[in-house]
Design a protein around this nucleic acid. Structure first.
Lengths: 231, 231
DNA sequence: AGGAGTATGTTGTATTTACAACAGAATTTG
DNA sequence: CAAATTCTGTTGTAAATACAACATACTCCT
């Protein structure tokens, strides 16, 4: 178990927790570690959403199954990733998704109620974790809002500008590197890759921006046509 | 102040709180009630995001101002609505939006840190509110994910089917009423209203669904073409 | 009931986007 | 280093969507 301490401590939920506190904490939380073989269901759709998981080892996928049995991969999980927390915190009755082991997996499971309820000794870390979880949920909220803004923009150019402007804002600079390649960016914005490439080319031609690979630089007059200021 | 008790108690953040507990609670939370004239800034972009607000009276708008001073209305707030909680919980340094009074407003303001930190007397309602806030954030997360799924679908028909299927799932029935008129639905899905209307007409013609105003009923063979099963 | 205002549906046209196919650059692999 | 693979950009064409304009239906108000 303690071979996984570093992974656990790196997780945002455990932010601000010192290594020495961890053992007692996990004990108090009644944390359990389980092994799953390839293709096993770590969480099964239809089951209760009472636990929060951490992938300590292996890879897994969050999948949704529609009425006709078609499986869609919603997220891919890697070592250190947390999963199930949104459903647990939302207190949904039954899980709408499954989490399937893509290979052999080792998982840390926490009971959400235990995590939420300050224990008798009112230990400090409980409050810390609650604060952490709150921040995680709220920040995810902000990221989702950002994506909705970009995807909802009308037209490929507007989507790109919305996304790139947000990245520039986040970077605090008109020059920044995005965490996507072209195909991933196209998927994120829900547009066709080649059409998006063409649009990027046109935008560069018009001097709106410059780019090289995943590095972008927005022109300072971005999106503002001089004619707007003529009377 | 107690003229507003009913509004406060109806808010999800105060869910499970009894009327008799409220006075002591608000006192312990150092809650303050403030009046704002029309066009006043309740929260100002660039300022700290340390408080959570409730609109007790009047209407307000959450607005974002881009680099060039263009204002976009992100949300309209009505009586009873909570605002600012995502930024407070995410612990962002500076507010990226402003909240402007659309008319005379009365607002209840809570300090997020006070709300989060269990007070010395470890009063029960603190835990209740923390649980409530967690659920509010997580449920908002689920709603945003639902919207992203719909908006990201390729093509008007796929967007409609994604949205309508989610509504049917939520309703637990293939027949349900949506909370939008056509224009609002089109805005939600980021498509053109008239094109969407036409698509709905085609879909009804093909027997995929039936509708009347905001009442929809999905066919049970929805989205499954019989040919898929011919081999 | 009458009329104003709003909501919805319909159609034709212009524009935009997706799709497919390919070429060149960059990266990875043996 | 060379071959294979992946990534990116380009182009022409087909398809989908937005836009504009209008007809009809519905709602609200007095």
């Amino acid at each position: 178990m303690n071979q996984y301490f570093d992974i656990i401590l790196k997780s945002p939920l455990f932010g601000g927790i010192r290594r020495g506190e961890l053992v007692g904490m996990l004990d108090c939380l009644r944390a359990s570690v389980r092994d799953y073989p390839k293709d096993a269901a770590i969480f099964l759709a239809g089951g209760p959403a009472t636990r929060v998981g951490f992938l300590l080892r292996g890879n897994a996928q969050v999948v949704r199954e529609d009425v006709f049995g078609n499986r869609t991969i919603l997220t891919s999980l890697a070592q250190g990733d947390m999963f199930g927390e949104v459903f647990a915190c939302a207190e949904v009755e039954t899980l709408p998704v499954s989490v399937m082991a893509a290979g052999k997996c080792v998982v840390l499971l926490l009971d959400y109620k235990k995590l939420l309820t300050t224990c008798s000794s009112s230990c400090a870390f409980h409050n810390r974790m609650i604060e952490n979880m709150m921040r995680i949920l709220a920040q995810k909220n902000l990221r989702l809002n950002e994506k909705i803004e970009a995807v909802s923009a009308r037209g490929t150019r507007a989507k790109l500008l919305t996304y790139l402007a947000a990245q520039a804002r986040r970077a605090g600079s008109p020059a920044f590197t995005i965490p996507f390649n072209r195909q991933e960016l196209a998927d994120y914005l829900a547009v066709d890759r080649s059409a998006m490439s063409a649009e990027l080319g046109r935008m560069q031609g018009e001097g709106l921006l410059r780019y090289d690979k995943s590095r972008f630089e927005l022109a300072n007059n971005m999106g503002v046509d001089d004619e707007d200021y003529l009377e």
